[in-house]
Design a protein around this nucleic acid. Structure first.
Length: 573
DNA sequence: ACTTGTTTACTTCATT
DNA sequence: AATGAAGTAAACAAGT
């Protein structure tokens, strides 16, 4: 089955639309996509989460979207009380990715989206100046604005010449000076292949010694986007075993969780992700794992999710507590210190300071071989770092001061007390079941971090405070290469036969509670290709998770997940 | 035996 | 100097 059909069916299923609606598909060849819309206010570039979305449209007129990326447009016809609407999917030859653009406003009835080849667009036209977009004609990609967009953007590798789109595994990415580098055709296919320590240059980093790498700037003096990641000497953390990444353990954990796309991660998966993405930890003394565990236990931002009794495997799962995401977003925490960077003393002299530790994670705009990340994304992770550290001593009995003062207290006794406190805290998480969270207020309406922290767990979806759903789509016409494509006869119909059971995900009234962005995200979440989390033996026990990591979209599996999403949403309401 | 999780103690460094 | 954040080390318990 063609991927586009799978996408369409998945979308139909999600929206409760009959799958036999005459779908209209327009295939777009590999090309640069440039969007030109009279009204841009209703268009957004979607991140994988609401928090990544700017209140202002990130898309500028004539913005250059990508180079050599295939795309197709699906038009979902009107059904029931819905207007028709469009989805635009960007994809490569192997897998369909989530939509990156959509139209969502009735006020944009006149909106016309035109997609045209790069040849017809002069260099430096409007949009290129926008930090959300950058053109890159080499083997690397500068795309998009959102942190989480990296999850799907990293799947693309654009060749320099012919606009070929080659699948790029997540392993072809690496943090370069903290930048996510999109590897070119010659890049090693595996992180181990890029690992000097595994290529005959054995090196075991010394026990980390503190060395300032990114110090000297006040956190409040955050540079603008253009200043991020301007490390003169890029450090590829994925392949460089010498330099300890300039991220706190909490940040590393967060990154692993965020990258995984899973609602929760096991400890071993966190280890795995860190080792795969930061060479330093592949060779470092394993005591860092102790620190990870220490951080998970101590840091209030992380919640332990016990394994089900019938669930095989060792240990529980970990997730980020949205309560703290909420707090951090409200600006309750202030960061006092930048995470230090550990560096092998031998190489210390070679590595020059970066402006900020965080700047490593948020690359420079338009830099060669880096991805562009918006200031909003920068702020998000900064906020996270603030929150993960600033509140460790929430409970006075757990504060370091109290700890120091109480050194002579009985260890056993303290442990018992603290466990009780921790248990109470975790039970009061809004993530937990109704019984467990009794007495807790609802999440705030504008709490978008849920989507970021837990994109697959729809039960944690935020709702628009206003409860307003932007009517999606409408019947605006699309213009491609100057040709109006909105009329049915210009679309190639897809056979869509399967819709045996009613599977309405949301009733109409329920739908109105969901922001369209959330809705679209949910409808397309299954299209993503998240980082592989489960161990091999675990996958054998749960084969349905495999498709998430494979490049091919299996329609049956897709529907299964769609069902899961539906159930989650239904239970949420 | 090993992994996972919790806790305490301590050190280092930055900020106030 | 005091304080706090972050990291390191280690003891210990529980589970697989």
């Amino acid at each position: 089955m063609e991927a586009r059909e799978a996408v369409y069916k998945g979308v139909c299923r999600f929206y409760g639309a009959p799958a036999n609606l005459p779908v209209q598909v327009l295939n777009l060849p590999p090309q640069e996509l440039r969007l030109s819309m009279p009204s841009l206010t209703r268009y957004r570039i979607s991140g994988d989460n609401a928090a990544e979305r700017s209140p202002e449209p990130l898309l500028r007129s004539n913005a250059l979207l990508a180079t050599g990326v295939c795309a197709f447009i699906l038009k979902l016809p009107a059904f029931r009380s819905r207007s028709s609407f469009f989805f635009i999917y960007i994809y490569n030859s192997a897998a369909v990715k989530r939509p990156t653009l959509w139209s969502s406003s009735p006020g944009d009835g006149e909106a016309i989206m035109s997609l045209s080849s790069a040849d017809s667009w002069p260099e430096g036209s409007a949009g290129l100046e926008d930090e959300s977009f950058a053109r890159d004609s080499g083997a690397t990609v500068c795309l998009d604005d959102s942190l989480t967009s990296l999850q799907w953007l990293q799947e693309f590798s654009i060749s320099a010449g012919g606009g070929q789109v080659a699948p790029l595994s997540a392993q072809n990415q690496s943090y370069v000076g903290g930048h996510l580098r999109m590897a070119g055709p010659d890049a090693p296919a595996s992180p181990m292949a890029a690992d000097p320590a595994s290529m005959g240059t054995p090196h075991t980093p010394s026990k980390p010694t503190s060395a300032a790498f990114c110090r000297g700037l006040s956190p409040s003096a955050l540079p603008g986007p253009a200043a991020y990641g301007r490390c003169p000497e890029d450090v590829d953390y994925k392949s460089d075993p010498h330099v300890k990444p300039p991220y706190s353990y909490a940040t590393l954990i967060c990154m692993a969780m965020q990258a995984s796309k899973k609602s929760k991660l096991t400890l071993s998966c966190i280890y795995k992700w860190i080792k795969e993405n930061f060479c330093y930890f592949r060779h470092a003394d394993p005591t860092w794992q102790n620190s990870i565990r220490h951080n998970l236990s101590l840091n209030k931002c992380f919640i332990k999710v016990p394994r089900q009794k019938d669930e095989p495997g060792k240990g529980g799962f970990w997730k980020i507590d949205p309560q703290y995401a909420d707090r951090l977003l409200s600006g309750a925490y202030k960061k006092h210190r930048l995470p230090p960077v550990q560096i092998n003393p031998v190489l210390q002299a070679r590595v020059k300071p970066a402006p900020l530790a965080l700047s490593g994670f948020f690359p420079a705009v338009g830099g060669q071989g880096t991805l562009s990340v918006s200031p909003e994304s920068v702020q998000l992770l900064q906020d996270f770092e603030q929150a993960t550290g600033a509140d460790q001593n929430w409970d006075p009995s757990l504060s370091s001061a109290a700890s120091r003062a109480g050194k002579r207290c009985s260890r056993k006794r303290k442990r018992t007390q603290d466990r009780g406190l921790k248990y109470f805290r975790r039970c009061s998480s809004p993530l937990l079941s109704g019984d467990e969270q009794e007495g807790l207020g609802p999440l705030k309406g504008d709490f978008d971090w849920n989507a970021l922290l837990d994109p697959a767990l729809t039960g944690e979806l935020s709702l628009d405070g206003a409860g307003e759903l932007s009517p999606i789509g409408h019947d605006e016409d699309l213009m491609v290469h100057g040709t109006r494509i909105g009329r049915p006869q210009q679309w190639s119909p897809l056979e869509t036969s399967r819709d045996g059971e009613e599977n309405h995900v949301l009733s109409q009234t329920q739908e109105t509670s969901l922001d369209f962005d959330e809705e679209t995200f949910l409808a397309t979440a299954f299209l993503q290709n998240p980082w592989q989390e489960e161990d091999d033996d675990k996958r054998e026990q749960n084969p349905q998770v495999d498709f998430l990591c494979s490049s091919a979209v299996n329609i049956e599996q897709l529907f299964d997940l769609s069902d899961d999403l539906s159930n989650n949403i239904s239970s949420f309401f």
